[in-house]
Every structure is written in C-alpha cells, then in structure tokens.
Amino acid sequence: MAGSDMPLGELLEHLLGLANVSLSLWDLPENATARLINVSENATYLVEATGGHKSVLRVHRENYHTRRAIECELAWLDALSAENVVTTPGYYIGKDGSAIQEARAPGLADPRFLVLFHFVEGEAPDESGDMSAGYEQLGAIAAKCHQHTISWDKPQPFERLTWDVEAVFGDTPTWGNWRDAPEVTGDARSVLEQVETTIRNRLAAYGKAPERYNLIHADMRLANLLVDDAGTRLIDFDDCGHGWLMYDFASAISFIEDDPRIPDCKAAWLKGYQSVRQLSAEDLAEIDTFIMLRRMALLAWIGSHIEAPEPQELAPGFAATTARLGQAWLDDLV
C-alpha cells in the first residue's frame, strides 16, 4: 500500500481498527466483524456475522482514487450488470444513503473511502494445469466489456485512472519508476531502456482511437473470475480506467508472462475475444507490446510496494526475467 510512510504492520493495525469501527455505517448485524483478506493498493476485509452474513469491505488507499472516480467505477459495474454484459458484484448503501462512505481512525492522518460489496460465491478457474478454457472465457468477457464501453454513454465528468505510456513511463508514473525496482542494474537496465523506447514509439504510431483505447478493466485475470452453478462473475474493478483495449490481455497474464503455457493462453483468449468482436491486424500486431508495457508497470509496482509481502516474494529475479522477455520481444521485431 504505497502512499504511506508508516511501516506496513503498524498501518494494517490502524486500518483493521478503522474497518471494524466503520461497519456501523451500514445496516449490518451488531456482531459483524472484519478480518483482512488482501493487501494491495487497498486493504480488503471479509465481514462476517452470525446468521451467515458475509460481505467484502474495501478500504481505499489514501490519495489514490477520488470520490468521483469511485462513483464512476460503481456506475460501470451497474451498467454492465443492468445491460447483461457480465455479472458484477453488488454493493451496499450506507445508512446515509451513499454507496461510498468516508471514515477516520486514530493514528491515520487522512480519512479513507470505503465501499462494502456483496459477497460473491464461486471459485476462480483452476490455474494449475491447462488454462486455455479459462482464457477463452476471459477473452469473450473482455470483448463484451469492450463493446459495451465503446458505445456506453458514460456519466460526466467521467474520472478514472489512466493506463497509458505516460502513466507507466512519465514524470509521475502511477506505480513509480521501474528504474527504482530491485535488481534493475547493468545489462538488465540497458535492455529495459531499449524496451521503454520501443514501446513508446510503437504505441505512438498505434494511436488512441476509441475502438483501440477506451475504458478497460485493467486487471482481468483468472483470479478475478468467480464461477459456480449460477454463472460467472467478474470482480475487482478497482484498477479500471482509460487504456488500450488489448492491455486487458496483458493484465490477464500479470506476473506469469514467462510461463510456458502463455502462448496457448493467448491463442485461447484471442479465440474467445474474436467470437464476440473482431480485431484488426494492427491490434494483433501490438498485443506483445502491451505485454511488455504491463510487465514494466509491474516491475515499477514491485519497487514502489516493496514493504508488502507479495512484492517481496516476487522481487528476486523479476527484473532479470523482465529484461529477458524484453530482449526476446525486441529480437522478434527485427
């Protein structure tokens, strides 16, 4: 949870207190309690109470999303579900009539925005073996979301994060500068400088026409699909924002870009996608560019979030693998 100078352990103690105190903002059972289940940009808590109540509380990182940006996320969730594009999680309205709550707690300098989501039943597709079926489903869902966003009359002003070249490589990158990540030295850095320059040049030529660049989920991984007998649900829209549509495939293989199964996953994703929406030759030609853009963003994310357990686990060798993937990509372009 970059954005706070407080040690992570101390921060999480304060946030747990905030999470539990804030439950009174909704009409929940009196004995409801929150326990941490995930830490990334935000802290996410499972809320449980006797009688079988379950819900999911998202406590937002400070200074990451504005209230308006969260309103726009929820508006897209509502539209996708209402128009039967894909089922998305519902959310609770607070006692004051608002879906977005704001709360403070001792020890935290800034208030936090909070959203309480319905608990979603189901399991994510299995990632231990052949993932092709899951990626074909992901591709079809991505295409449906893209078709929707291209034609959707978005509420104005529409405010969300941007996932373009400047957001990754600019003067104030959203997730930090990849050069500050662990082990970015020597030959690895030299290769990655070439990768950045090439990405910049190719995507400047590709452009931002609305059928190429629009509102995207930006984290549409198998882990964010939940499947049961009632159907498939797409969750975790916290990173949704303005970006290239094909970036949604790149985000779908986050952290596993070097997995030997990825070529099959890519083929399956494209099969699913093009069963709904056709892609141009230019779109297909730049998919690997977006894979490298995302990988560079993840390298920066590791560096700027290194106090958290997941980045610490991922950091060893991540820069070297990114450079190896980058060099192979550059070689293929020749």
Rank of each mutant, 00 (worst) to 15 (best):
L28T: 01
A79M: 11
E159H: 05
A267L: 13
D239R: 09
L234K: 00
Q137N: 09
A181Q: 03
G186L: 06
W163T: 05
V191Y: 02
L114R: 03
E71A: 13
L138E: 01
T174W: 06
V334S: 14
E62K: 12
H65D: 12
T172L: 10
G317S: 00
L161T: 11
D332G: 14
Q274C: 13
V191I: 15
V165L: 12
L203Q: 02
E159T: 06
L215P: 00
I302N: 03
S55P: 03
V168P: 00
P111S: 12
P263K: 11
A99S: 14
I291D: 15
A209E: 10
H60P: 04
P316I: 01
G90T: 08
Y92C: 09
L314D: 08
Y213H: 08
R189A: 13
Q156H: 11
L11I: 00
I100E: 04
L222K: 02
G303K: 00
S304L: 07
S190L: 15
V195A: 06
R324T: 11
D236R: 01
G243A: 10
A103C: 12
H14M: 08
L138C: 07
H53W: 12
E102W: 07
W301Y: 14
D259V: 08
A285N: 10
Q194H: 12
H60Q: 13
K95R: 15
V227W: 02
A285M: 08
F119G: 09
N31Y: 06
E123S: 15
L333I: 02
G243C: 05
L225P: 00
I262M: 15
T88E: 05
D264S: 15
R277V: 08
A109C: 09
D258L: 09
Q194A: 11
L215A: 03
T322G: 00
L11K: 01
H118Y: 10
A319F: 02
Y64W: 13
Q312H: 07
N38K: 14
N84D: 15
F318A: 00
L77P: 04
E102A: 06
L57M: 11
L298Y: 08
P260D: 12
D248C: 05
E136R: 13
E313K: 15
G176K: 00
L57N: 05
L36F: 03
P157W: 07
P29S: 06
A188G: 10
E48I: 10
